Amino acid sequence: MSNSSKQQAPATVEVTAAELQGPGVVFCPNPKMALWSNHPRVFIDVAGHGEGKCPYCGTVYKLKAGEKVSHGH
Rank of each mutant, 00 (worst) to 15 (best):
P23H: 10
S2Q: 00
E67R: 09
A65W: 03
G66R: 10
S4Q: 09
C57Y: 03
Q21L: 15
F43G: 01
A17I: 11
W36G: 02
E51L: 08
N30E: 07
C28L: 05
S37V: 11
Q7M: 15
E19N: 06
G24L: 07
L20P: 09
E14A: 13
G48E: 15
E67Y: 10
C28D: 08
P23A: 11
K53I: 14
M1N: 00
S4A: 08
P31I: 05
K6W: 05
P40S: 00
K6S: 12
A18L: 11
K68N: 06
V26W: 09
Y56L: 12
T16A: 14
P40A: 00
P23T: 14
E51A: 08
L35H: 03
V26H: 09
K6F: 06
N38F: 07
P29I: 04
A17F: 14
A65R: 15
Q8K: 05
K53F: 09
D45V: 06
V69Y: 12
L63R: 10
M33F: 09
T59N: 09
Q21H: 15
Y56W: 13
D45Q: 11
I44Y: 08
T59R: 13
D45H: 14
G50H: 12
Q21G: 11
T12W: 00
P31M: 01
H73W: 03
S70F: 02
S5G: 02
G24A: 10
P31S: 02
V15T: 01
T59S: 03
T12K: 00
G52E: 08
I44R: 04
S70Y: 01
S5K: 05
H71G: 13
V26A: 05
L35K: 12
V26K: 11
G52T: 07
K6P: 01
C28S: 10
W36L: 07
S4R: 03
K64W: 04
K64E: 13
A9L: 07
A34N: 03
G52M: 12
V26Q: 10
A65E: 15
Q8L: 04
W36M: 05
Q7G: 03
E19Q: 15
E51N: 15
V60G: 03
E14R: 10
K68Q: 14
Y56E: 13
H71M: 11
P55N: 03
W36E: 15
V25L: 09
G48F: 13
P23L: 04
P40F: 00
G66Y: 11
S4K: 11
H49L: 15
L20E: 11
W36S: 14
E14S: 12
E14H: 14
P10R: 00
V69K: 08
V42Y: 04
A65G: 03
G48S: 15
H39F: 01
L63H: 06
S37R: 12
K32N: 06
N30R: 12
W36N: 08
H71L: 13
V69T: 08
G22T: 13
V15D: 02
S4D: 05
H49G: 14
P31H: 04
N3L: 14
V25Q: 09
G48H: 12
V26P: 03
S2E: 02
G72R: 03
S70R: 02
G22V: 08
P29S: 07
M1H: 01
E67V: 11
K64R: 13
V46N: 05
H39L: 04
S37L: 06
K62G: 08
H71Q: 11
V69G: 08
V26R: 12
G52V: 07
P40L: 01
L63P: 12
T16P: 06
A9Y: 01
H39N: 00
A34P: 02
W36H: 05
